[in-house]
């Protein structure tokens, strides 16, 4: 299944990735291969088959509204870079 360079750029944009034109060409080919692979699923005829809502013993399990334990601030932030001990920090976001 072919995918256009425009689509690749769009997807890269959604993922906040900047691609060079060489990368765009490369991913256009590679993504087409991946899509082809998944296309094999189309062999299965799903005409008239309802999506699975639940299966015996596997319905959505709900939990009671009980407070459990959380991570401490220190451990929550243990692997965060550029933090100040209280907050996660990311490069300045202005647009919002």
């Amino acid at each position: 299944m072919p995918i256009s360079k425009e689509q690749v750029k769009h997807i890269a944009g959604l993922a906040h990735l900047k691609l060079t034109s060489r990368e765009v060409s490369r991913y256009t080919k590679e993504l087409a291969l991946i899509l082809d692979y998944f296309d094999q699923l189309k062999v299965v005829d799903t005409e008239g088959v309802e999506p699975e809502k639940e299966r015996v013993g596997e319905a959505l399990i709900l939990r009671e509204d009980k407070v459990g334990s959380s991570l401490t601030q220190t451990s929550a932030l243990a692997n965060a870079s550029g933090g100040n001990g209280e907050y996660f920090s990311v490069p300045r976001v202005i647009d919002k």
Binding site: G68, S69, L71, T72, L77, Y87
Partner: peptide, 23 residues
């Protein structure tokens, strides 16, 4: 609610930042 939507972290306002989180 007392706890969050998909985990048991307490819903609380004014708690110190990032003290009510979990995986």
């Amino acid at each position: 609610t007392d706890s969050k939507m998909f985990c048991g972290c307490k819903v609380s306002y004014g708690a110190s930042p990032n003290s009510r989180t979990c995986p």
